[in-house]
């Protein structure tokens, strides 16, 4: 090897710091989770809807793992959500009411389905993937409908009795235990997802998303990576579904419905794709808007959400958030801005 006659303007230390900086928790992030924890104490009358927000947020994070980071579009993510919900519900009825065990079983069941169907989304472009994922969700929905001896069919799965959380905390009618449970699960899984996207594995996913030809040319086993993240994402969705079943103690065919898949996509588009907080922020905006608008006039909800969607996609969420970030930066100084810039790629809604 020959010597290096070129001047380096970045030392190894600076490079290492620059790389690690992206994995570090920002002030904005800490504040975000502190605020979330504060709602446990300061918004007791809102715990039912907050619980729903946490669950949808987790579901959106799950979708972001495949859509935002690996570039796999899906119109059928509810398949995993629904399977998780039914498995958690049936498990509580037939086996044990312990929430954590049930949640783990729901996650594993959804992961198995995700693993099995991941091979269907490996091939083909976006349209193929949209259709395949949609098809899988439709099939799952119809199976749940037909197997009414197991799922309760159109009447829903009733009579789920949950045991106390950790053997100590009973689920109450105000949803406080439920919300605390969902929030902690969300936080733990979020931290794991955060590690994943900042790891070498996460970087390889982004590289596959951006240019799979080159990804292969640096020796990345593209298919195996996609199978892995699809399975992880399915487990996340299954756990979100399981949380819903456990905290509402009811499962209906609605968990597998098409609108579930569409809503979660909407949530992610509102909050931002390819940026884990996008799913959480989107879930908050989506649910709060839904709550306000539908209490005014139920039929207007669809109108407004449709309008917002069109504006978001046409005006470009990047531009809108850029502006918001700029204003926030001027108000609070630079460090208080959003946790990190979204590496969202152009041209994708």
């Amino acid at each position: 090897m020959q010597d290096k006659p070129f001047m380096s303007s970045l030392t190894t230390d600076e490079v290492a710091t620059s790389l690690r900086r992206k994995g570090r928790w920002g002030l904005g992030e800490v504040l975000f989770w502190l605020a979330a924890a504060a709602t446990l104490f300061f918004l007791p009358e809102r715990h039912l809807i907050l619980n729903e927000i946490a669950i949808i947020g987790l579901f959106a994070v799950s979708l972001d793992l495949i859509l935002g980071y690996a570039g796999i579009v899906s119109l059928g993510h509810a398949a995993f959500f629904g399977v998780g919900a039914y498995v958690a519900g049936i498990f509580a009825k037939e086996m044990t009411g312990d929430p954590l065990t049930g949640l783990a079983v729901a996650g594993v069941a959804a992961a198995l389905l995700g693993f099995a169907t991941s091979f269907l989304v490996l091939r083909g472009a976006d349209l193929t993937r949209l259709m395949v994922t949609l098809g899988v969700a439709l099939v799952a929905g119809e199976i749940a409908n037909q197997a009414s001896w197991l799922t309760g069919g159109a009447d829903g799965l009733q009579g789920i009795m949950m045991g106390p959380l950790l053997g100590m905390f009973e689920f109450d009618i105000f949803g406080t235990t439920a919300y605390a449970y969902s929030l902690v699960v969300l936080f733990v899984l979020f931290v794991v997802a955060r590690r994943i996207v900042h790891s070498p594995f996460g970087l390889s996913l982004r590289s596959i998303r951006d240019n799979s030809l080159r990804a292969r040319a640096v020796g990345i086993p593209v298919n195996r990576r996609l199978v892995a993240i699809y399975t992880i994402s399915a487990a996340y969705a299954g756990i979100a579904g399981g949380l819903l079943a456990q905290t509402t103690q009811f499962v209906s065919l609605d968990v597998l419905a098409f609108h579930r898949s569409a809503d979660v996509l909407l949530v992610l588009v509102i909050g931002g794709v390819g940026y884990l907080y996008g799913g959480l922020i989107g879930a908050v905006i989506f649910k709060v808007l839904q709550d306000i608008l539908s209490s005014m006039t139920p039929q207007y909800w669809q109108f407004w959400i449709g309008l917002i969607l069109v504006v978001l996609v046409l005006a470009g969420r990047e531009r809108l958030t850029e502006r918001a970030r700029f204003l926030a930066g001027r108000l609070f100084g630079r460090s208080a801005g959003a946790p990190r810039t979204a590496p969202a790629r152009e041209g994708r809604p």
Partner: peptide, 22 residues
């Protein structure tokens, strides 16, 4: 970094933050 960590077999590593390997 992606190419180097793939070659070193740490591309499957999903837990460590990218860049922490000196």
């Amino acid at each position: 970094g992606l190419a180097v960590s793939e070659r070193k077999g740490s591309g499957r590593d999903w837990w460590r933050v990218f860049g922490s390997d000196r």
